[in-house]
Design a protein around this nucleic acid. Structure first.
Lengths: 324, 324
DNA sequence: TACGGCCGCGCTCAGATGAGCGCCTGAGGG
DNA sequence: CCCTCAGGCGCTCATCTGAGCGCGGCCGTA
């Protein structure tokens, strides 16, 4: 190539005409008085020699490559990997929330019924939802009092207000002291009304927790004894209160009866379930949830995405090579 | 686009499949269960939005863009613009020489007859000519003694030796004292033999000079009186001793009779005439030479190329915009 | 000198592609 | 409530493009 400057220049010229000016090979061939086959071969060599470099790069904060890989690997309808370091959880949650809002904006239509479960990352969702469609918004789980004061009721109301649709909220905790209390709570009119909406929810937004301390709102909310007993039943993760095993299948544990919120069946009935998950430590839990098929979309960050893609379920790092 | 992350990811995915994996649009459409028209539209938007960036860049020392533009603008068969600063003339000449060698390597076949005129830039040509074809090499012009000691005879011999073909050299100066002396010199057997070869030369390498002090070997070699008289005849440049006017047409000046070398007709008879030119000040001279049609290829450097392309013949800078 | 292999070239033809068109749907305004 | 308009979608058909093939020139070998 270095030894054939005239050919090099011709190749570059052809490449410019083809790639930058969008001319057809036939046209280029006619203009340069060479055969279209030669044009094709010159373009081939231009690609092979690196004369033509093609880069695909999203300018924004989404890692499109990892997103697409997640989508393929787990058969997801939606997968968003935000290109943000996980060092600052506040910033991370805000970006995850914005990404979720963008996805909702894109996929929720006026005839949908949107269900929201509690997830801290969703607290930032409101801002990005200007001009949202006026669809009903339903609270999927009971509330948990949090030090920062924001709660799922506020979230549901905020989203509903953004679109102008009705908000269906209820006042009940996520986990009741025992099954009897839970039953009583479920009979409250507001809780019953919201529960009646659940089967008609078409799009749900949920969080994923691992069955470990600090990685699950539910886990942290129950007594040590219950934590252990539930784990012995095979529970390794939970999807907004729906306890699941490593295969991602719902587990009917005694604890389930104490939880005020959606059931596995209701989750399965939704057209779209968007899960928001962050924290590398949750990798196995997230993998379980994805494999179980209850979740059709994932919104997460780079390091967790890489763990999901490049580490086997045994926790051993497999090929970390990027595609190709 | 920022508001449609799922679409963005799909677009990026499609772009990767199309541009990086070389899959057909139909194939991508089938795999992603979308129509091929959607694939086409996604690719369009990827191009328009800048998600896909295509760069064409020669890794070497040749500016392919300017080269191609020169080729188009002046209808040249060959145009090489070396991407070297013109600050150091020694480095510049070496690179021009190498580029010329590369071009010769590419275009000279065994049944060609190669003619070389004196040009300092050609002194570096020998090194790059390993494995040259064994074709005859003919000296086109008389010699000029130069302080650095290299001369056209040595050049011709070196190139001939590189290919293993015969060298046709002669001992005579480029400019004789008067027409009579020149006639006598031309009758020397070696000069006559070389001259007899001239009509069969198929590829010639020449230099271009401007009819000004310091910009032409011939100009500097003759008396002031002759310089002026020749200029008054319309001569503004010379192609290895062939005096031309601004239109690039040969001028029959008295001085022509004193020059031992090729004639305009002989130049016109060559299939390919490669001119080597450097120095921005020669821009007008080079433009004349190119417009005259005697030269079919140009080997030069960036700044001169830009002057040729982006400055009108009146010397006024016109649009300096790069293409597109 | 004759021969076989190699390489670059351009042909054929089936499959891929682009331009233009009409349909449908959804948003906005009377 | 209906009407209109814009935008997204996929169809058709003419054109473009890719894969494979055979030809002819070049080179090394016998």
């Amino acid at each position: 190539m270095t030894q054939r400057p005239t050919e090099l220049i011709l190749t570059a010229r052809v490449a410019r005409m083809y790639y930058l000016d969008d001319r057809s090979k036939t046209e280029i061939a006619d203009e340069l008085s060479i055969s279209r086959f030669r044009v094709a071969r010159l373009l081939d060599s231009a690609r092979r020699s690196g004369l033509v470099r093609i880069e695909i790069d999203a300018p924004g904060k989404v890692n499109t490559d990892l997103s697409a890989q997640l989508q393929t690997a787990f058969g997801l309808a939606h997968a968003i990997v935000v290109d943000i370091s996980d060092e600052d959880p506040v910033v991370l949650r805000r970006h995850l929330g914005e990404a979720a809002a963008d996805v909702l904006h894109e996929i929720v239509k006026a005839d949908d019924v949107l269900g929201l479960a509690w997830a801290r990352s969703l607290s930032g969702i409101g801002a990005a939802l200007d001009g949202f469609v006026p669809c009903p918004v339903v609270q999927l789980t009971g509330a948990l009092s949090r030090p920062d004061g924001s709660d799922v009721l506020e979230l549901v109301r905020r989203v509903a207000r953004a679109g102008g649709g009705p908000a269906h909220v209820f006042y009940a905790p996520l986990v009741a002291a025992d099954a009897t209390t839970a039953r009583t709570l479920r009979r409250q009119p507001d809780v019953a009304r919201a529960a009646a909406m659940l089967p008609s929810v078409t799009v749900g937004v949920v969080g994923i927790g691992a069955w470990q301390a600090g990685l699950s709102t539910i886990f942290d909310a129950v007594e040590h004894e219950t934590q252990q007993r539930t784990r012995r039943l095979g529970v390794t993760a939970e999807i907004s209160g729906v306890l699941i095993d490593t295969a991602g299948k719902p587990v009917n544990a005694p604890l389930s009866k104490r939880i005020i919120g959606l059931t596995g069946d209701q989750l399965a009935g939704m057209r779209t379930v968007l899960a928001i998950a962050y924290g590398e430590e949750k990798a196995d839990a997230v993998r379980s949830a994805l494999n179980g098929g209850l979740v059709s979309g994932l919104i997460t960050h780079e390091s967790l995405a890489r763990r999901l893609l490049f580490t086997g379920s045994d926790g051993v790092r497999s090929t970390d090579a990027e595609r190709r």
